[in-house]
Protein backbone atom coordinates (compact mmCIF):
# COMPACT_ATOMS: atom_id res chain seq x y z
CA UNK A 1 0.00 0.00 0.00
CA UNK A 2 2.78 2.40 0.95
CA UNK A 3 6.37 2.54 -0.19
CA UNK A 4 8.58 5.20 1.35
CA UNK A 5 12.19 5.47 0.25
CA UNK A 6 14.72 7.77 1.87
CA UNK A 7 12.24 10.43 2.88
CA UNK A 8 14.18 13.44 4.07
CA UNK A 9 12.66 16.74 5.06
CA UNK A 10 14.58 19.80 6.13
CA UNK A 11 13.28 23.07 7.50
CA UNK A 12 16.17 25.40 6.91
CA UNK A 13 19.11 23.86 8.80
CA UNK A 14 16.94 21.59 10.91
CA UNK A 15 16.40 18.09 9.60
CA UNK A 16 12.94 17.02 10.68
CA UNK A 17 12.94 13.66 8.91
CA UNK A 18 16.13 11.95 7.84
CA UNK A 19 16.11 9.23 5.18
CA UNK A 20 13.18 7.23 6.44
CA UNK A 21 12.30 4.17 4.41
CA UNK A 22 9.62 1.60 4.97
CA UNK A 23 7.03 -0.42 3.17
CA UNK A 24 3.60 -1.30 4.34
CA UNK A 25 1.45 -4.08 2.94
CA UNK A 26 -2.28 -3.83 2.32
CA UNK A 27 -4.27 -4.32 5.50
CA UNK A 28 -1.28 -3.83 7.77
CA UNK A 29 -1.16 -1.21 10.46
CA UNK A 30 1.84 0.84 11.44
CA UNK A 31 2.36 2.98 14.50
CA UNK A 32 4.78 5.89 14.55
CA UNK A 33 6.32 6.13 17.99
CA UNK A 34 8.52 8.84 19.36
CA UNK A 35 8.73 11.87 21.54
CA UNK A 36 7.44 15.28 20.51
CA UNK A 37 9.62 16.64 17.73
CA UNK A 38 10.78 13.22 16.68
CA UNK A 39 9.31 13.82 13.23
CA UNK A 40 6.07 11.84 13.34
CA UNK A 41 3.84 14.63 12.07
CA UNK A 42 6.33 15.73 9.43
CA UNK A 43 6.69 12.17 8.18
CA UNK A 44 2.91 11.90 7.89
CA UNK A 45 2.79 15.14 5.92
CA UNK A 46 5.49 13.88 3.61
CA UNK A 47 3.66 10.63 3.02
CA UNK A 48 0.52 12.59 2.20
CA UNK A 49 2.51 14.76 -0.19
CA UNK A 50 1.33 17.88 1.59
CA UNK A 51 4.84 19.29 1.83
CA UNK A 52 7.88 18.96 -0.35
CA UNK A 53 10.55 16.47 0.60
CA UNK A 54 13.49 14.54 -0.77
CA UNK A 55 13.13 10.86 -1.48
CA UNK A 56 10.14 8.99 -2.82
CA UNK A 57 6.80 7.98 -1.46
CA UNK A 58 3.94 6.25 -3.16
CA UNK A 59 0.51 5.18 -2.07
CA UNK A 60 -1.04 2.26 -3.88
CA UNK A 61 1.70 2.64 -6.48
CA UNK A 62 0.90 6.31 -7.10
CA UNK A 63 3.74 8.75 -6.55
CA UNK A 64 2.58 11.31 -3.98
CA UNK A 65 4.75 14.08 -5.32
CA UNK A 66 3.88 13.80 -8.96
CA UNK A 67 0.28 12.73 -8.66
CA UNK A 68 -0.47 13.75 -5.10
CA UNK A 69 -4.10 14.47 -5.78
CA UNK A 70 -4.74 10.93 -7.02
CA UNK A 71 -2.59 9.38 -4.30
CA UNK A 72 -4.53 11.27 -1.62
CA UNK A 73 -7.78 9.97 -3.06
CA UNK A 74 -6.74 6.65 -1.50
CA UNK A 75 -6.22 8.22 1.92
CA UNK A 76 -8.49 9.30 4.70
CA UNK A 77 -6.65 11.69 6.99
CA UNK A 78 -7.53 12.39 10.60
CA UNK A 79 -5.55 15.19 12.23
CA UNK A 80 -4.75 15.66 15.89
CA UNK A 81 -7.63 18.07 16.06
CA UNK A 82 -9.97 18.83 13.22
CA UNK A 83 -9.11 22.29 11.94
CA UNK A 84 -11.87 23.57 9.75
CA UNK A 85 -13.67 26.87 9.47
CA UNK A 86 -15.21 27.26 12.87
CA UNK A 87 -18.21 29.09 11.49
CA UNK A 88 -19.09 26.33 9.06
CA UNK A 89 -22.00 24.14 9.95
CA UNK A 90 -21.45 20.45 10.16
CA UNK A 91 -23.74 19.79 7.20
CA UNK A 92 -22.00 22.27 4.93
CA UNK A 93 -18.55 21.04 5.93
CA UNK A 94 -19.67 17.52 5.17
CA UNK A 95 -21.18 18.60 1.86
CA UNK A 96 -17.94 20.35 0.91
CA UNK A 97 -15.75 17.34 1.61
CA UNK A 98 -18.26 15.02 0.01
CA UNK A 99 -17.91 17.19 -3.08
CA UNK A 100 -14.13 16.96 -2.97
CA UNK A 101 -14.18 13.22 -2.48
CA UNK A 102 -16.91 12.49 -5.00
CA UNK A 103 -19.23 11.10 -2.37
CA UNK A 104 -22.96 11.50 -2.71
CA UNK A 105 -24.94 13.39 -0.05
CA UNK A 106 -26.45 10.06 0.93
CA UNK A 107 -22.99 8.63 1.56
CA UNK A 108 -22.15 11.71 3.58
CA UNK A 109 -25.25 11.22 5.70
CA UNK A 110 -24.36 7.56 6.19
CA UNK A 111 -20.84 8.50 7.26
CA UNK A 112 -22.20 10.93 9.81
CA UNK A 113 -24.58 8.32 11.07
CA UNK A 114 -21.78 5.80 11.33
CA UNK A 115 -19.87 8.04 13.76
CA UNK A 116 -23.03 8.93 15.62
CA UNK A 117 -23.29 12.54 14.55
CA UNK A 118 -26.73 12.36 12.94
CA UNK A 119 -28.90 15.13 14.31
CA UNK A 120 -26.02 17.56 14.78
CA UNK A 121 -25.99 18.80 11.18
CA UNK A 122 -27.03 22.35 12.10
CA UNK A 123 -24.26 22.70 14.71
CA UNK A 124 -21.27 24.83 13.93
CA UNK A 125 -17.87 23.18 13.99
CA UNK A 126 -16.77 25.49 16.82
CA UNK A 127 -19.61 24.20 19.03
CA UNK A 128 -18.58 20.56 18.74
CA UNK A 129 -16.80 18.85 21.61
CA UNK A 130 -13.32 17.43 21.05
CA UNK A 131 -14.67 13.94 20.69
CA UNK A 132 -17.33 15.05 18.22
CA UNK A 133 -14.72 16.88 16.17
CA UNK A 134 -12.60 13.76 15.94
CA UNK A 135 -15.65 11.73 14.99
CA UNK A 136 -16.43 14.30 12.31
CA UNK A 137 -12.84 14.03 11.08
CA UNK A 138 -13.26 10.26 10.94
CA UNK A 139 -16.53 10.62 9.07
CA UNK A 140 -14.82 12.88 6.54
CA UNK A 141 -11.87 10.52 6.23
CA UNK A 142 -14.18 7.62 5.53
CA UNK A 143 -16.38 9.50 3.05
CA UNK A 144 -14.98 7.93 -0.06
CA UNK A 145 -14.23 4.62 1.68
CA UNK A 146 -10.45 4.88 1.16
CA UNK A 147 -8.21 1.83 1.69
CA UNK A 148 -5.68 3.77 3.78
CA UNK A 149 -6.37 5.76 6.95
CA UNK A 150 -3.67 8.09 8.23
CA UNK A 151 -4.07 9.47 11.73
CA UNK A 152 -1.87 11.97 13.53
CA UNK A 153 -2.30 11.42 17.27
CA UNK A 154 -6.05 11.11 16.84
CA UNK A 155 -6.76 10.66 20.55
CA UNK A 156 -4.36 13.04 22.20
CA UNK A 157 -7.04 15.68 22.85
CA UNK A 158 -9.68 13.23 24.03
CA UNK A 159 -10.72 11.89 27.40
CA UNK A 160 -10.71 8.18 28.24
CA UNK A 161 -14.20 7.55 26.89
CA UNK A 162 -13.44 9.41 23.65
CA UNK A 163 -10.20 7.47 23.23
CA UNK A 164 -12.01 4.22 23.74
CA UNK A 165 -14.52 5.08 21.02
CA UNK A 166 -11.85 6.04 18.51
CA UNK A 167 -9.72 2.98 19.22
CA UNK A 168 -12.79 0.81 18.95
CA UNK A 169 -13.66 2.31 15.57
CA UNK A 170 -10.12 1.94 14.29
CA UNK A 171 -10.00 -1.65 15.37
CA UNK A 172 -13.19 -2.25 13.41
CA UNK A 173 -11.65 -0.58 10.37
CA UNK A 174 -8.53 -2.71 10.70
CA UNK A 175 -10.64 -5.80 10.85
CA UNK A 176 -12.48 -4.61 7.76
CA UNK A 177 -9.19 -4.67 5.89
CA UNK A 178 -8.11 -1.04 5.96
CA UNK A 179 -4.46 -0.13 6.10
CA UNK A 180 -3.63 2.16 9.05
CA UNK A 181 -0.79 4.51 9.79
CA UNK A 182 -1.01 6.42 13.01
CA UNK A 183 1.15 8.41 15.34
CA UNK A 184 0.51 7.89 19.02
CA UNK A 185 1.85 8.57 22.48
CA UNK A 186 -0.08 5.79 24.14
CA UNK A 187 1.34 2.27 24.40
CA UNK A 188 -2.09 0.72 24.92
CA UNK A 189 -3.29 2.12 21.59
CA UNK A 190 -0.18 0.93 19.84
CA UNK A 191 -0.46 -2.47 21.41
CA UNK A 192 -4.11 -2.86 20.55
CA UNK A 193 -3.96 -1.49 16.99
CA UNK A 194 -0.48 -1.79 15.47
CA UNK A 195 1.24 -4.71 13.79
CA UNK A 196 4.42 -2.73 13.46
CA UNK A 197 6.04 0.21 15.18
CA UNK A 198 8.50 2.67 13.71
CA UNK A 199 10.42 4.23 16.56
CA UNK A 200 11.52 7.71 15.49
CA UNK A 201 14.12 9.77 17.21
CA UNK A 202 15.27 13.12 15.90
CA UNK A 203 13.91 12.28 12.48
CA UNK A 204 15.61 8.91 12.17
CA UNK A 205 14.12 5.45 12.38
CA UNK A 206 15.69 4.00 15.50
CA UNK A 207 13.86 0.67 15.36
CA UNK A 208 11.43 -0.96 13.00
CA UNK A 209 9.79 -3.45 15.28
CA UNK A 210 6.57 -4.83 16.74
CA UNK A 211 4.71 -3.76 19.87
CA UNK A 212 5.52 -7.06 21.54
CA UNK A 213 9.20 -6.57 21.01
CA UNK A 214 9.08 -2.97 22.05
CA UNK A 215 7.33 -3.68 25.33
CA UNK A 216 8.26 -7.27 26.26
CA UNK A 217 7.24 -6.70 29.86
CA UNK A 218 4.15 -4.91 29.03
CA UNK A 219 1.47 -7.51 29.18
CA UNK A 220 -2.15 -6.80 29.38
CA UNK A 221 -2.52 -9.03 32.39
CA UNK A 222 -0.46 -8.87 35.54
CA UNK A 223 -0.31 -11.15 38.50
CA UNK A 224 -0.57 -9.75 41.98
CA UNK A 225 -0.10 -11.56 45.23
CA UNK A 226 -2.43 -10.74 48.09
CA UNK A 227 -1.50 -11.30 51.71
CA UNK A 228 -4.59 -11.60 53.86
CA UNK A 229 -5.01 -10.57 57.48
CA UNK A 230 -6.26 -13.98 58.55
CA UNK A 231 -6.13 -17.42 57.07
CA UNK A 232 -9.28 -17.26 54.94
CA UNK A 233 -7.63 -17.96 51.56
CA UNK A 234 -10.23 -20.51 50.59
CA UNK A 235 -13.15 -18.10 51.18
CA UNK A 236 -11.29 -15.32 49.47
CA UNK A 237 -10.49 -17.48 46.43
CA UNK A 238 -14.11 -18.49 46.18
CA UNK A 239 -15.27 -14.87 46.39
CA UNK A 240 -12.76 -13.73 43.75
CA UNK A 241 -13.71 -16.50 41.40
CA UNK A 242 -17.29 -15.53 41.72
CA UNK A 243 -16.24 -11.96 40.87
CA UNK A 244 -14.66 -13.34 37.69
CA UNK A 245 -10.95 -13.39 38.52
CA UNK A 246 -8.49 -16.17 37.87
CA UNK A 247 -7.05 -17.22 41.24
CA UNK A 248 -4.13 -19.43 42.16
CA UNK A 249 -3.33 -20.59 45.65
CA UNK A 250 0.30 -21.49 46.08
CA UNK A 251 0.64 -21.41 49.82
CA UNK A 252 2.25 -18.04 50.04
CA UNK A 253 -0.66 -15.64 49.72
CA UNK A 254 -3.18 -15.58 46.95
CA UNK A 255 -2.12 -14.95 43.33
CA UNK A 256 -4.70 -13.17 41.15
CA UNK A 257 -4.49 -12.28 37.46
CA UNK A 258 -5.82 -8.79 36.84
CA UNK A 259 -5.94 -6.29 34.04
CA UNK A 260 -2.98 -3.96 34.23
CA UNK A 261 -5.15 -0.96 35.06
CA UNK A 262 -7.51 -2.76 37.45
CA UNK A 263 -5.15 -3.87 40.19
CA UNK A 264 -7.34 -2.63 43.04
CA UNK A 265 -10.42 -4.56 41.97
CA UNK A 266 -9.71 -7.77 43.93
CA UNK A 267 -9.23 -5.70 47.07
CA UNK A 268 -12.61 -4.07 46.83
CA UNK A 269 -14.21 -7.40 45.90
CA UNK A 270 -12.80 -8.93 49.05
CA UNK A 271 -13.83 -5.95 51.13
CA UNK A 272 -17.42 -6.72 50.17
CA UNK A 273 -16.96 -10.11 51.94
CA UNK A 274 -15.31 -8.40 54.88
CA UNK A 275 -12.01 -10.03 54.07
CA UNK A 276 -9.15 -7.66 54.87
CA UNK A 277 -6.09 -7.50 52.64
CA UNK A 278 -2.89 -6.84 54.58
CA UNK A 279 -0.45 -6.39 51.75
CA UNK A 280 -0.18 -6.69 47.96
CA UNK A 281 2.75 -7.50 45.73
CA UNK A 282 2.95 -6.95 41.96
CA UNK A 283 4.74 -9.88 40.42
CA UNK A 284 6.64 -8.76 37.35
CA UNK A 285 8.01 -11.42 35.07
CA UNK A 286 5.81 -14.02 36.63
CA UNK A 287 3.78 -16.00 34.24
CA UNK A 288 0.50 -17.21 35.47
CA UNK A 289 0.36 -20.94 35.58
CA UNK A 290 -2.42 -22.39 33.60
CA UNK A 291 -4.88 -23.47 36.21
CA UNK A 292 -8.50 -23.95 35.86
CA UNK A 293 -10.48 -22.64 38.76
Amino acid sequence: MITATNITKKFGRITAVSSVSFELADGASLALWGSNGAGKTTLIRCILGVCRFQGRASIGGIDVRRRGRHARALVGYVPQELAFHDDARLASAMAFFAGLRRATPATAARSLAAVGLTGHERKRVRDLSGGMKQRLALAIALLSDPPLIVLDEPTSNLDAAGRGEVVHTLRALKQAGKTLIFASHRPDEVISLADRVLVLERGRVERDTTPAELWPTEKPVQVIRLHLAMAREEDAAEALRRAGHAVHLNGDGLCVAVARDRKAEPISALALHRIEVRDIEVLDDVRFPEVQP
Binding site: R89, S92, M94, P105, A108, A109, R110, A113, T118, E121
Partner: peptide, 12 residues
Amino acid sequence: ERRALPIPEGTS
Protein backbone atom coordinates in the same frame (compact mmCIF):
# COMPACT_ATOMS: atom_id res chain seq x y z
CA GLU B 1 -28.31 27.54 -0.57
CA ARG B 2 -27.12 24.71 1.63
CA ARG B 3 -27.48 21.21 0.35
CA ALA B 4 -29.09 19.39 3.22
CA LEU B 5 -27.84 15.92 3.87
CA PRO B 6 -30.61 13.39 3.55
CA ILE B 7 -30.92 11.26 6.61
CA PRO B 8 -30.71 7.61 5.59
CA GLU B 9 -33.42 5.37 6.85
CA GLY B 10 -32.79 3.19 9.83
CA THR B 11 -29.66 4.98 11.05
CA SER B 12 -31.41 7.14 13.58
